[in-house]
Design a protein around this nucleic acid. Structure first.
Lengths: 227, 227
DNA sequence: ATTATCTATAGATCTATAGATAATGC
DNA sequence: ATTATCTATAGATCTATAGATAATGC
């Protein structure tokens, strides 16, 4: 598992096209470069606080060139939302179909979500903290993220029903878990796995009636995922 | 305790001044109204995505009137940050001086922080999720918030040393706790105490080696605070 | 005389479009 | 012929200032 969110070069064989004004050889994955630059800037300055000029400059382009790759500025943010959601959505779907007990599957989901988001270049996960996510024009991305939270909620409800988790409102607990996943963290290279484990351990310890089972549940979860 | 963050009317006896263009009688707490309007808009649309025109309209004023109360748009956000930080900073200072054991004091801190933020009109707490908090011009607010996180970290370190909490990196755990406190939640009226309890219970359950002590710790914490 | 507001507007953006241009590909 | 880029710019903002105005206070 742990497919990275690496975006494939839009056109790996590209040679045509006017040279860039800055003289730098064009990347073969300009779209990817734009998304990376935009993610870093949106997270640092906000969406409205980042001009298309700033994104273009960070990607080594003139401002109007962005509109060759994205119809509007909104479309850039939408692509980032969808990019950060694609992998967790696929993994969660798989996890929900697995046979294991609720605690191990919840551990696996939290672990995979934190890891996938941390994996992505330039902490794409932090885009979910942007207020724009709440705007109607990004309803699709918001709905996809709600599906992730609902998966957490279902697994939590299952664990409460089975007597593994302490009683509580699964929907609210699921939101707390998601806010742990999306906690803004500056990760050095290679720290993502440790962060994923810390977050999943923290969440499961909070939910379990018998937290001394954490180690066994972690092992079961990681075994589930490596199948 | 639980002093609310209610802002005092800047000038409760005001009668002078040109009438408003919208005909509505001027509030006696215009500054307060502006902050409330701005908080709701910043959280919904982001800081740069909210025009001073929009804030003024929501407060029943013409756009330039804002600048009678705040020198710049930045100053509005800065006032919001400081407003949301004032109460937790005061409470944390008190808690650190209290004699109780680390778990109860940590419980008290988390509970008070979640409650204080939820108390404030218009979910001011969500302003801490705005990317602008990271900008140098808001360094003072960011530093104040870091002091809150350091209080969590000190209490967590103390609890680990005393054998109450499971081992871990106090600084990272403190950030996880803060992200629970600031989890974006739409609270109906009167739900804030339940949310504060849920967050504090969740955090302490995750940290304690013996989570069956949670009930006793909660009682101790609430007793501490009502002294 | 003081206060809180207003109207008008300068100057600085910022998004997106139109259309030219300099490469490669055939 | 197609592609990726460029330059130039229209039109729509948006912040903040200047200075007038309509109340109350003395």
């Amino acid at each position: 598992m742990t497919q990275t969110l690496e975006i494939r070069p839009d056109n790996p064989h590209r040679k045509a096209g006017r040279p860039r004004a800055n003289g730098v050889k064009a990347s073969t994955a300009t779209r990817h470069d734009i998304l990376n630059a935009a993610a870093a800037l949106f997270v640092a300055r906000g969406f409205a606080g980042t001009s298309t000029q700033a994104i273009a400059a960070a990607a080594g382009l003139r401002q109007p060139t962005l509109f060759h790759y994205f119809k509007t500025k909104d479309a850039i943010l939408d692509a980032l939302f969808m990019l950060a959601l694609a992998e967790p959505l696929a993994i969660f779907k798989r996890i929900e179909a697995l046979p294991g007990a609720a605690p191990a599957r919840l551990y696996a989901a939290i672990h995979a979500d934190t890891l996938s988001l941390s994996n992505t270049a330039n902490n794409v996960k932090a885009v979910f903290l942007l207020p724009e996510l709440g705007h109607p024009r990004f309803a699709q991305a918001r709905a996809a993220r709600e599906r992730l939270i609902e998966t957490f909620a279902r697994l939590i409800a299952e664990g409460i029903a089975s007597g593994d988790f302490r009683p509580g409102d699964p929907a609210r607990l699921a939101r707390l878990v998601m806010s742990l996943d999306e906690a803004p963290v500056a990760l050095a290279a290679g720290e993502a796995p440790a962060q994923a484990r810390m977050v999943a351990d923290f969440a499961l310890s909070a939910l379990l009636i018998a937290p001394e089972r954490l180690g066994a549940i972690r092992d079961e979860a990681l075994a589930l995922m490596s199948e």
